[in-house]
Design a binder for these strands. Structure first.
Length: 259
DNA sequence: ATGTCGGCATTGTGCCGA
């Protein structure tokens, strides 16, 4: 089973490029972030025509997550538990029904800039709620994954120019520590389970020729429960897509699972 | 090189978020 996470930066702006990618890459499951659309305005037809089941959790203008799946989706839930006041659409879960069930969580973690400040406080509070949900997933002792735009540069080697990110919410020590606290519960970061060393990025800013200069960061991640890690065949970043026509500023990250 | 997008309110362009 091939599963991708992809921050598309707007479904309306990205629709042609997204459909081209789907036709070419044929993911079984795709977790989308930053759909920037309410559910009612999401263009469902081209995805359903291609045989995808579609579950969205959107809001006006910002954020928004979705799941595409060629296999049936069950037990869909929307919103990260732990704060009934939180209106931001950043979390969706579903069970992919195949030979063996797989629980998938799609997430768009808050950016958090500027730090310090209320946006950074929200990021850290959101990560504490994420940790709580992560503990529950582990306790279930079943194949499950949490994937998406984490807005976390885990280590300096995950940035082309780490010094420029030193005071940024994506790389501050408290951000990295919160990410590690979740990892250290017992998750496998799929990309680092397969590939070591610098030079691997999933995001290049639209500004300042970042793509041309390969000035990227790795912020889109797959975290696997032990039972999902047992099934891991490969994890890769589809870097080439950043050079295509009208790209997102992120590229897809893939896992292949033995399912 | 203070360099780009996308969405929105709005109708020509400025603001926000990233």
């Amino acid at each position: 089973m091939k599963i991708a996470t992809f921050n598309i930066n707007g479904i309306k702006a990205r629709l042609p490029a997204l459909l081209d990618w789907l036709d070419e890459a044929q993911p079984d499951v795709a977790l989308l972030q930053e759909i920037k659309s309410v559910d009612e305005a999401f263009p469902r037809e081209p995805f359903e025509e291609r045989g995808y089941n579609l579950e969205t959790h959107g809001q006006k203008s910002f954020n928004g997550v979705a799941i595409l799946s060629k296999l049936p989706l069950e037990d869909v839930t929307r919103g990260l538990p732990g704060d009934d006041e939180d209106e931001q659409a950043r979390w969706i879960e579903a069970t992919v029904v195949g030979k063996q069930a797989l629980r998938i969580c799609g997430l768009y973690l808050p950016n958090g800039n500027p730090a310090p400040g209320p946006k950074y406080d929200y990021k850290l509070a959101w990560m504490a709620r994420l940790e709580a949900r992560a503990r529950e997933l582990l306790a279930a002792e079943e194949p499950a994954l949490m994937a998406g735009d984490y807005n976390i540069i885990p280590q300096d080697e995950d940035a082309a120019r780490p010094e420029t990110w030193k005071d940024d919410a994506l790389a501050l020590p408290a951000s990295r520590a919160a990410f590690r606290r979740i990892l250290n519960l017992g998750f496998t970061e799929a990309f680092r389970a397969r590939t070591r060393g610098p030079g691997h990025y999933s995001f290049w800013d639209y500004q300042a020729g970042a793509w041309t200069r390969d000035d990227g960061i790795r912020i889109d991640h797959f975290l696997l429960t032990p039972q999902a890690a047992d099934l891991l065949i490969d994890c890769r970043i589809e870097r080439e897509l950043r050079g295509h026509e009208k790209p997102s500023d992120h590229v897809p990250v893939w896992v292949e699972l033995d399912l």
